[in-house]
Design a protein around this nucleic acid. Structure first.
Lengths: 153, 153
DNA sequence: GCTGAAAGGGACAGAGT
DNA sequence: ACTCTGTCCCTTTCAGC
């Protein structure tokens, strides 16, 4: 597949909104017969546009009440220092996302916690036990104002 | 359902890893018969632990090459100012997430862009056309170091 | 590339342990 | 609360347009 056409993009939008519908129903919503719809989806999967199908869990319902954006600065920006930090961060389950940043901070982490105790434990782990950490600044989210589920296609 | 037990949590982990498997296969991976597995999943859905099933799209494959964390400060922290800003932010599709923050910045936005032009357009829209914006600081992600798909349950 | 029909398999409900 | 079993519907394929 060279480039997804308008129907493909519509299908992708539908799939990232709710993937648990039959090809019958999905076909109806984009104006395709079930088998044509099925073939399109298969092609989109094979071309790598769809990386997976996932259940989205309710974080609050599961007790994750707090979310933070943590800025991290390292002592050194050598390749070894970055590699060591990145390897260590993989093992912390509370870290949902970690980005190497341009600009002021070296890294930005998006983390989620159940309670203050959880966060203290995490904070300690980040500042004391992660290699090369010079500076940590935590920003707590008071409320999630917007949460788009999926890409703006 | 009062609280999900160990089997439920295992099931939730499996579902947020890959929800496109039959109850047969899912049951095998958690040690349940297909119908028992099916009943558990139904119960978890009904109790609100699962908020939806979504296809995860490949952002890079779809041309979204840039990601930013944008800090926004407002002129006023009055309720009207916050409401106006929050309403306006809902209409910008590139804004994947928006958080009301404790601390230095009023808001942190996670945005995604295809190219520089896209970002310039977005930046202009944020600073000029959004109500009450006093200060914007954009942080570009060089590389996504970690992307956990789902919650640490 | 689409439609339509036919076969195979999974989802779902009910009775039993 | 799980297992077994049967029914129904959907997925998937293939022939034809």
């Amino acid at each position: 597949m060279a480039q997804p056409d308008a129907t493909d993009r519509k299908l992708l939008r539908e799939l990232q909104r709710d993937s648990h519908r039959s090809v019958q129903v999905l076909g109806d919503s984009v104006g395709l017969s079930p088998s044509a719809c099925h073939r399109r989806i298969k092609a989109l999967e094979d071309a790598g546009y769809i990386s997976g199908y996932r259940a989205e869990l309710d974080a609050e319902r599961l007790g994750f009440a707090m979310q933070f954006f943590i800025e991290v600065g390292l002592n050194s920006q050598s390749e070894a220092a970055l590699d060591a930090f990145e390897a260590a961060v993989q093992d912390i389950p509370e870290v949902l996302e970690c980005h190497l940043m341009a600009g002021h901070s070296d890294y930005i982490l998006r983390v989620i916690c159940r309670d203050h105790e959880d966060f203290e434990h995490l904070h300690r782990r980040l500042s004391a036990r992660l290699p090369g950490v010079a500076r940590i600044h935590s920003n707590m989210s008071i409320r999630r104002v917007k949460a788009r589920t999926g890409l703006p296609i």
